[in-house]
Simulated assay, not measured.
Amino acid sequence: MSDKTEAFLHSQTRENLMRAFAGESQARNRYTIAAGVANKAGLAVIQGVFLFTAEQERVHAKQFYSCLEDCAGQTVKVDGTYPVDIYSGVLDYLRAAQHNEYQEWEHDYDHFAKTAMSEGFPLVGKLFENIARVEKTHGDRFGKFADLMEKDQLFFSEAEVTWMCLHCGWTVKATAAPAHCPVCRHPQGYFVRFELAPWS
C-alpha cells in the first residue's frame, strides 16, 4: 500500500467523500419524491425540474463514490445531518431544495474542498469545488421556479414570451401558456417558458 493510499484511508477527506455521497444520494431521492408531489398537483414542468436535477445529483454521487475506490470492501462510518423535507405543497419542496443546494454550495463543499487540499488531495478538492458550483446553479434554478409560483407567473407573463410544451415541443408566443396543447392535448402544466428549458 502506498503512502498516499495510507494517508487517504486515515483522512477526513475520506469521510467527507462518504458524507457527500450520502447527501447526493438522499437529494436524488428527495427530488424524486418531490417530483411525484408535483405530478399529482398537475405541474409536469416542476416534476421535470426535480427529475432533471435528481439525475444530476446521481452523477455527483457517482463521482464522489468513485473517489473512494481505495476503500473498496471497507465500511466507512460517518456522522452527518440530513434534511427531512416532507411537505404537502410543491412550493415548499422548491424552497427547501433551494435552501439545501445553497447549503452545499456555500458551506459543506467549500469546507470539504479546503480540507482535501490541506490533506494533499487536490483532485478531490477540485471536484468538491466544481460540484459546489453546480449546486449553486441548482439552488438558483429551484429559486427561479419558486419565485414564478409565488408570483403566479409559472404559466402567465406580463409580456409575450415563448411557451413550449414539454411533451411534444410545440411552441407559441403569448402572455399565458395555453390551457391545453393543440398538438398533443396535454394540459397547461406541461408548458414552460422557452428560455427556462431545459431548466437552465
Rank of each mutant, 00 (worst) to 15 (best):
E195V: 11
Y93H: 12
A176I: 01
Q63W: 11
A44C: 03
F128R: 00
L9F: 13
L154V: 05
F156P: 02
L196G: 08
V172R: 10
L123K: 13
P122C: 03
A22M: 14
T13C: 09
I86D: 01
L94I: 06
L68C: 09
M18I: 08
E135K: 13
H107A: 05
V59E: 13
R14P: 04
Q188W: 02
E158N: 09
M18W: 15
A54Q: 03
E129N: 10
Q47N: 10
L148I: 07
F121W: 02
I46V: 15
A61E: 10
G48D: 07
V84S: 09
G120P: 04
K126D: 07
K173Y: 06
N130D: 14
R28D: 03
L127P: 01
P83Y: 15
L123E: 11
E129Q: 13
C165D: 07
D70C: 09
M164Y: 03
L127D: 03
A177W: 01
I131Y: 08
C181Y: 02
V161P: 02
C184N: 12
H180I: 08
Q103N: 12
A20S: 15
L9H: 12
Q12L: 10
V76T: 07
Q74M: 12
L154I: 09
N16Q: 12
D92N: 08
S2T: 15
N100E: 10
E69Q: 14
A22C: 12
D70T: 13
G125Q: 04
A38Y: 03
A197Q: 13
